[in-house]
């Protein structure tokens, strides 16, 4: 298990923090302000792409919710990233249709090629890998979504070609 290594520079981005605080302030007018914790964490992840420790500390102070409780919620849901994700987030569909059409081989290709496992980031920070259930593109199975783009009818070879395109782009 990895403890979140906080990136202080990200966390002290004043503009993002001001946005987050304003969002929290809105929720605190409700009769049950505590019930907005998950919504606030969603907002924080939207702003920072993950949940840095100093940001969770800020949320704790603003909402008067103990940090341990926030940590319990943040670790319970797989949706929340506790470490910075890669520049490109690869979501591999492991739904039934994709699985039948060879998602397991695509996943193995990704693991071999990127040398990371589910939920991890490549050392150069370019890619992170996460599972997805159905992406609603079963006709193109097996599919992988990179950021918000769908890549369908994949074969191991095609998968490597796509990765290389992203790598080439990053070098420019």
């Amino acid at each position: 298990m990895t403890t979140t290594q906080a990136n202080d520079a990200i966390a002290t981005d004043d503009q993002k923090l001001a946005q987050l605080k304003e969002f929290i302030a809105q929720t605190q007018k409700d009769e049950h302000p505590d019930s907005f914790l998950i919504a606030v964490l969603h907002k924080a992840q939207e702003l920072y792409s993950y949940l840095p420790v100093p940001v969770m500390d800020e949320i704790a102070q603003e909402m008067a919710i103990p940090t341990a409780h926030i940590w319990g919620v943040a670790t319970f849901y797989h949706y929340f990233n506790l470490t910075p994700p890669g520049q490109h987030v690869i979501s591999i569909c492991l739904g039934t249709a994709c699985y039948v059409r060879g998602a397991a081989q695509i996943l193995q290709t990704l693991r071999d090629e990127l040398k990371i496992d589910m939920g991890q980031v490549t050392p150069d920070g370019l890619f992170s890998l996460q599972p997805a259930r159905c992406l609603g593109a079963c006709g193109l199975a097996p599919v992988v979504m990179i950021d918000d783009k769908i890549h369908g009818e994949l074969t191991p070879k095609k998968m490597i070609q796509i990765l290389n395109q992203y790598r080439k782009q990053a070098k420019k």
């Binding site: 298990m1 403890t3 969770m56 103990p66 940090t67 341990a68 940590w71 319990g72 670790t75």
Partner: peptide
């Protein structure tokens, strides 16, 4: 409020915030 049950299922561990 030092302790929480972090993570889920088989991986659940009682720990302080941020481990």
């Amino acid at each position: 409020h030092c302790l929480t049950q972090a993570h889920r299922g088989f991986n659940t561990v009682v720990m302080p915030a941020y481990n």
